[in-house]
Design a protein around this nucleic acid. Sequence first.
DNA 1: CGTTGCGTTGAATAAGGTCAAATAGAGTGG
DNA 2: CCACTCTATTTGACCTTATTCAACGCAACG
Lengths: 266, 266
Amino acid sequence: MQADTRDAPGPVMKSDGLQQAGTSRTDEDAAALLRSSCTVCNRRELCLPGSLDEEDAAQVSRIVYTRRRVRAGESLYQAGAPFRSLYAVRAGFFKSYIVSAGGRIQVTGFQMSGEIIGVDGIDQERHTLSVAALEDSEVCVIPYSRLEEMSARVPALRRQLHRMMAREIVGDHGVMLLLGSMRAEERVAAFLLNLSRRFVARGYAASQFQLRMTREEIGSYLGLKLETVSRIFSHMHELGVLEVQKKSISIKSVPRLRALVHQAEP
Amino acid sequence: MQADTRDAPGPVMKSDGLQQAGTSRTDEDAAALLRSSCTVCNRRELCLPGSLDEEDAAQVSRIVYTRRRVRAGESLYQAGAPFRSLYAVRAGFFKSYIVSAGGRIQVTGFQMSGEIIGVDGIDQERHTLSVAALEDSEVCVIPYSRLEEMSARVPALRRQLHRMMAREIVGDHGVMLLLGSMRAEERVAAFLLNLSRRFVARGYAASQFQLRMTREEIGSYLGLKLETVSRIFSHMHELGVLEVQKKSISIKSVPRLRALVHQAEP
DNA sequence: CGTTGCGTTGAATAAGGTCAAATAGAGTGG
DNA sequence: CCACTCTATTTGACCTTATTCAACGCAACG
C-alpha cells in the first residue's frame, strides 16, 4: 500500500494495457487510439458512455485521456485521499472497502471492467473508501470537474451519469438485503450468481470462472468468516451444485444455485 | 397500502402542513409561501437546496410547487411504480424497504425532514423500493425531468444533486459496514447514535426522542429479529446507558453508547 | 527446501433466532 | 366510562447457525 496523489498531472500512458506483449504499434496508431478511446472501447456499453451516440461518446473521450495501471495488491486510492477523478475499470479487477473507526474492515464491492469507481468521494471531496486491485489492472481516469461541466452541456451524458450513480444505490440496497436478511448459504449463492451475471455481460462463460479474491475478502463482503465461506463451497460441492478448486469455480447447475437463494426463511 | 399514480397532475395543496390547527391565513399569504417555499423553508440547509444562494434556491422553488400528504401507514410509492419525481420530506417520518423475489423484506432506511426520497427510481425509471409513512407526513414533490433540466443550467444545483446522491451511496456503505461486521449490540448502539445525530441537526434534543418505528422495523433495518432488539434495549437499560419506555428513548450517556459501537471484535 | 499465505476441516462455543407466554397500551364499540 | 380487542413489546427456555480456535494440506516462491 502506498499514498498516491498522482493522476491528472501524470504522463499520458500510450499503451492500451490490453495489447499483447510483443506486438508493436506506430505512434500515430497509438495517438488515434487514445483520441477515440471510448468510441472504440469494447467495454463501452457497460461503461459510462453507455448508450451515448458516437458524437457524445467522442465528447467523453476528449476528457478521458489518461490511463493508470495498478498492479495486483496496489491501491488505486485510499480513504481520506482528495477526490479529483472517477475511474472506469478498463481491465482487471478491484475491491473497494471501508475501514471503520474501530479498524474493522468491510469490503463494499468488487469492480470489474466497465464499472465506475470513485463516486464515494463526490460528497466530501475526499474518498471514504479505499480501493485496491486484485490483479494487474488498468483504469481510465475521468477528471470529475470536467465531467461535471460536460454533463451540463451534454444531456445524454448527464442522464448517463445520474443513472450510473442511481444504479450504484440500487445495487447497494441489494447488498443490504443480502446482509440483512439472508443466511450464509443464500448469501454465497447470490454472490456467485451475481458474479456469473456480470461475467456473462462481458462475454465470458456464465458457469466457469476464476475468483480473483480470497475467501476472506468474499467473507468480508458477505458478512461471513472465511471458514464459513469455505465450508459452504464444500457443501455446495457435496450437493453437486458447484465444482470448486481453490479459485476456480464451475457452476454445475445455475437453476439449483438460484433455488438456494430463494429458500423462504423458516 | 394502495397503488398510486398521482403526483404531478394532482391539485396543488395550499396548506403548508406545519400550520397550527386553528390559525388561518389569507390566500395571498398562502400563495406567497408556495412561490417561495424553499427560500423560507426551515429545512432548507438539510434539503436539496442545501447551500444554494437565494437566487438558485428560488429557481428550485419554481419547480417544487406540489406537496403531498401521506398519512401514517400509507405508502408514498411502491416498488414497480413508474418514477417521475423525487420527494423531499417536509414533515414526518418514512421508512423505505425492498421486497425480494422470495418475499423477504429489508428496511433500507428511515427518512426524516429535509431528506430526499426516490433516487431508487432514476436508473430504471421505475421504483425498486417501497416507501411508507410512519406518521402523518408531508413531502415536496420534485418533478425529476425538470430538476435534471434545471441542473444543466444551474451549476450549484447540479453539484448539490450529485452530492446528494453520493451522500446516499456513502451512507449505504455505512449500513453495509454495520450489517456486515458489527454484532447486535453495536448495531443498535450505532443506530441510536445515528438517529440522535439527525435529530440534533434538526434542532431537537440529542438524547431524548420518540422512535417512530416498531422493534420489528428496527430489526429489519439492522438485520436482527425484533426480540433481539428488545433484549438489547433492556440490556442497555440495565447498563444504565439508556432509558427505554416503549417508543420513548432517553440516552443516559452518549459517550458510553458510543463506546458500545467501537468495541474491537475479539 | 523451508517459509509463507491461502484454503480446508473438525470440535467446541457463543450469538442470535425461534417458539411460547405474559403484559401493557391504544383504540373501539357499547 | 368500561369492557374488549388488537397490536406491540418484553421475557424466558431452548435450539440453530455461524464463529472461534486449532490443526493440517497445498502450492508458490525465495
